[in-house]
């Protein structure tokens, strides 16, 4: 019996591997709490080390950047960049609000993104294999962060929180193939779905053939879909292609947030329903 088992050991192992894989894939479909606990545990274990690694590297580079490499220029550049980022963000909000007021004069009801509670978080890790697009942030449930909260920078939308441990969280970037944001073009108001494609740009799906979109037009979240509040800047349209026999316009969206290089991000600490709740509107 033992000899027989040893003879077919490799075949048995392959069968066990396939069965376990199948079981795990089924667990994804059910997505029960036990797998969630394991995921949270994995993030909780790794996050302190990621924090430490990021802190160490940050300190080393800070010494180089601040003391050895153009002290004043570096500081000034950083101040100016922050100012530009903030102005770009304010500009997006104001433009969007102005257009909305023009369309619906009676309805002075827009989410005041600038008054909603934000939690600033530092990026402590990211997937670097390119198979998934996600980042780790150093804020978790202890800081009031919860699943499905949007993450953004002054330049635009980054993604949404998909997993939270006590002191860290995982954010699925909008460029991930599993991400889809209901969106609208800022000028033409044409609706679309901004879908991630594991590339640097997103796909603008379901953009109707009669859409009046233009190259470079900004794309904002529409507030539909239940995750992202209305008015968050996603990116700018690029590569618009119209074909005579197609129902849809082909286009891509270049994210305005530099998703490959973000170091800090803001987590919008309000559930989507809260973000667009009447009492938050003006």
């Amino acid at each position: 019996m033992g000899d027989l088992f040893r003879k077919y050991l490799n075949a048995v192992m392959v069968i066990i591997l396939v069965v376990f894989t199948f079981a795990l894939l089924l667990a994804n479909l059910r997505k029960d709490s036990s797998t969630d606990i394991l995921e949270r545990a994995a993030v909780a274990i790794v996050a302190p080390f990621q924090n430490l690694a990021g802190w160490t590297v940050g300190k080393v580079f800070a010494v180089w950047d601040s003391y050895l490499y153009l002290v004043n220029v570096k500081d000034e550049n950083q101040r100016l960049r922050l100012a530009v980022d903030r102005l770009a963000f304010e500009n997006t909000l104001l433009t969007e609000r102005f257009k909305s007021y023009q369309r619906i004069e009676e309805l002075l009801a827009f989410p005041r993104l600038d008054t909603l509670p934000f939690e600033a978080a530092r990026v402590i890790g990211r997937d670097t294999t390119g198979r998934v697009r996600m980042i780790f942030l150093n804020k978790g449930s202890a800081h009031g962060v919860a699943r499905d909260m949007p993450a953004l920078t002054h330049r635009g939308l980054v993604g949404r929180v998909t997993l939270v441990s006590a002191t860290a969280c995982k954010v699925l970037l909008i460029t991930d193939v599993r991400s889809a944001v209901d969106a609208v073009a800022q000028e033409s108001r044409d609706a679309m779905v901004a879908s991630g494609a594991n590339r640097d740009t997103l796909e603008a799906r379901y953009l109707l053939a009669n859409a009046q979109v233009a190259e470079g037009e900004r794309v904002l979240s529409s507030g539909l879909g239940g995750v992202y509040p209305k008015g968050l800047l996603i990116g700018a349209l690029t590569g618009i292609r119209r074909e005579d026999d197609s129902l849809f316009v082909e286009a891509r969206i270049r994210p305005t947030a530099d998703l490959d290089r973000i170091e800090e991000t803001l987590i919008l600490k309000a559930a989507p329903q809260e973000a667009i709740a009447p009492e938050e509107w003006r």
Binding site: L17, L24, A27, L38, E39, A42, V132, M134, L172
Partner: peptide, 28 residues
């Protein structure tokens, strides 16, 4: 390989089975 892949799934992709199968098959 299975342990490595499972941890990869839990930590990164959040979709169990992908890394598990790939890394276990590689190791085997």
């Amino acid at each position: 390989g299975a342990a490595v892949g499972l941890f990869q799934d839990l930590l990164l992709s959040g979709t169990l089975g992908f890394g598990f199968f790939s890394k276990a098959a590689t190791g085997f």
